[in-house]
Design a protein around this nucleic acid. Sequence first.
DNA 1: GGGCACGCTAAGCGAGCGCTCACCCTTGCC
DNA 2: GGCAAGGGTGAGCGCTCGCTTAGCGTGCCC
Lengths: 214, 214
Amino acid sequence: MSTAEETAGAEAQPWGEVTPDAARRLLLAAVEAFAERGYHATTTRDIAGRAGMSPAALYIHYRTKEELLHRISRIGHEKAVAILRTAARAEGTPTRRLAEAVSSFVRWHAGGRTTARVVQYELDSLGPEARAEILGLRRQVDAEVRGLIEEGVRSGEFDVIDVQGTTLAVLSLCIDVARWFNVDGPRTPEEVGALYADLVLRMVGAGEAGPAQR
Amino acid sequence: MSTAEETAGAEAQPWGEVTPDAARRLLLAAVEAFAERGYHATTTRDIAGRAGMSPAALYIHYRTKEELLHRISRIGHEKAVAILRTAARAEGTPTRRLAEAVSSFVRWHAGGRTTARVVQYELDSLGPEARAEILGLRRQVDAEVRGLIEEGVRSGEFDVIDVQGTTLAVLSLCIDVARWFNVDGPRTPEEVGALYADLVLRMVGAGEAGPAQR
DNA sequence: GGGCACGCTAAGCGAGCGCTCACCCTTGCC
DNA sequence: GGCAAGGGTGAGCGCTCGCTTAGCGTGCCC
């Protein structure tokens, strides 16, 4: 709600809101470890080691290993909602705003692949209450994109029959970037963002912006 | 290579090739458990329990827990390749074949979500040699779809600039179905397959088959 | 019909797990 | 300078993990 202007960029200074410095280092180490090996395969000793601390230090700042995942997941989802909301509520036609939303959402998943992987693929590792809270944020993500597509359909720019299904597909396409994107691969996050924005505009039947290079 | 005609359907009698009956029951139990909780969160005691056997019974048919995952992953990937190959090498225009390939691939991911989840999301839990072998099968999957798109571009039916990027996006879209599809949800695998085939044809700019209901 | 190979179990080994506890340094305040 | 507070450590508890081993029942072969 308060983080307004630092939403668009790649990841300027992420996790800035995690206040005790040691707690932030631990959280960052946990993100890396969870992304590399998965939540269940990561040990608290590994997290503490990456942060340059003893295993016991973790429990000064977090009650359990799951609380670490919960914090990561919530901050990441809030960031995702903020990115989409910023793009969706900007000025311009639905076409332009949808393109910007997809492009920035994809850039976030590709550039911050480490974080995005944890956020998108470790939901089931959370306990029931934590998962329920995160699912609420996911509904907000869905609502932003669906609203944008509905707007385009209403204005006649888009040609979509199954709005909810298309929304699901668009989000699915963006989210899966976190699974396959390779930092050492041939594409930059910006290139994938541009390609995907074009593909999504085609999916919604946006007036032939065609296969332009931008 | 030999499995030729039993490729298209949903999952007629899967795992039929796993020969000792107890070994198949164990493998089926492992698929369920891995899909529900992930490889690392699943215990060998849980797998054996689901199969109605003692924990030690597992080691009569499989050397390690990882060998179970390896077998599941290989059989699943071979099935995936077979599905795409059958559709890609059928008769008809590239448009029709691409639609059929996407539709059947999606039906497999949605209907056999349990298996597909393990196959698509537990690759990193394999050791180096096993992972290398599976990656070879994934390259075959990629090649089938890429070949189909190239064919459509050559024939003038498709309008695609970045063939490799579009191939990646199409596969990504299909694969991610295994993550979000819910058997109790409002859509059948067939419906999702039809929707996705339409969306993919739009992505490749296939001549206005438009938003037809089929 | 005696022997034996095979599929399976009960019990348990060593290791590593998440997490705790008693204690130690540093820092800031009077 | 004394001292409380809080961030940090070394050692280790209780537990569960993947996997092993000794032995048991059953059915097939000669």
